[in-house]
Design a protein around this nucleic acid. Structure first.
Lengths: 192, 192
DNA sequence: ACGGATCCCATACGGTCGTATTGCGAAGGA
DNA sequence: TCCTTCGCAATACGACCGTATGGGATCCGT
């Protein structure tokens, strides 16, 4: 009879996460074009055959990796979003590539973003994540001269743009921080 | 003796531009990973051998293509930059993917941007172009509650971010326009 | 007219890619 | 204990990659 839901002896999901995380590491270091099955396997310290065992196709592998990016970003955005100003700062600190870990993550996101402009089905995941984030924030905006939706859209776009410019070396981290703070001041004036 | 500066019978530079433009077309349609020498040759309607004749290596080809992107964007920014408000609108119309041609261009830029985060030497070209643009604009900012540099950096980042979001399908063109206009209003209030 | 340079093409080569195939040790229900 | 299933590795295959090579045209200075 069928009884194949006992964990056998390895945790399927755990292995998949291990491999998917290896994808993200490879993409962060060398871009999407270096994310070959062989490289990913080497990064994860496993054999190519094992990657194939857990992901029947490379597409499935990349899809899983993309989902993990979204999950990571989502996990970063804690529920503690009190005042919009403080929430925005927190968001900012989490979304801007202020340290190496987030720079790696940002490179991954940017790689997938560029890929999404050309493979629209890839963009669905990113779209869902970001629109949820935006709506969540817009609901908390008060006291802005702009409508909440516009303020949210603009500030998120500003975050994206600053992130891209920092990652591509066009802007220093300090300049990005200063710029964002100044714009937050404009959009959400602190008139207690 | 040496006399090889007479145009022989084909215009070297013209051929190079033809092929480089084919690169941009391929990248716009399928991303950087589809920009193989063979695909580019097919797009340009020439043989692989001819591509090799005008570009000794693929790296040289891609570098030339990247330079052409910068040249195109630069060419779009006319010298007619009177008031910062109107100049900004003009810039915006040129930088946002409001029609298919600029969407294609935007996809190319985004592809190279993502590549630049992982191959820093590629970013030099983009960096030079964008910083020139930013400085040029900052010099014309007047009447902003922000410093010219910060205003310029923020608005350019906003443009980039809106462009990315439009290209990846996260934002509609209309919403991007509305958002940008609202932010311009904030940054450059029209107090004649 | 002729010799070399230029233009261009066709083809070949070595390498990497994604994936299919095969096999084998171990686990576990019958 | 047997035998199926699972976990995983090794290898093979065909496609595509960037580039090297060699050979025909065609032009041009001499």
């Amino acid at each position: 009879m069928y009884c194949h839901r006992v964990p056998k002896q390895v945790d399927h999901a755990e292995r998949r996460e291990l491999i998917a995380d290896a994808v993200l590491a490879v993409v962060a270091r060398g871009g999407l074009e270096e994310a070959s099955v062989r490289h990913v396997a080497a990064e994860a310290g496993v054999s190519v055959g094992m990657v194939q065992h857990y992901f029947r196709t490379k597409d499935e592998l990349m899809r899983c990796a993309l989902e993990r990016v979204g999950a990571r970003v989502q996990a970063r955005m804690g529920e503690g979003v009190e005042t919009p100003r403080e929430m925005l700062r927190a968001l900012f600190r989490q979304l801007l590539p202020l340290d190496e870990e987030r720079a790696r993550e940002g490179r991954v996101v940017l790689a997938f973003l560029a890929y999404a402009t050309v493979r629209p089905e890839v963009g669905a995941e990113l779209r869902a994540d970001s629109s949820a984030l935006r709506a969540h924030f817009a609901a908390g905006v008060v006291g802005s001269p702009l409508s909440p939706e516009v303020a949210a859209a603009g500030l998120f776009a500003l975050l994206d743009g600053l992130g891209v410019q920092v990652l591509s070396g066009q802007l220093s981290v300090e300049a990005a921080l200063e710029t964002f703070d100044a714009f937050v001041e404009l959009v959400l004036p602190l008139d207690i």
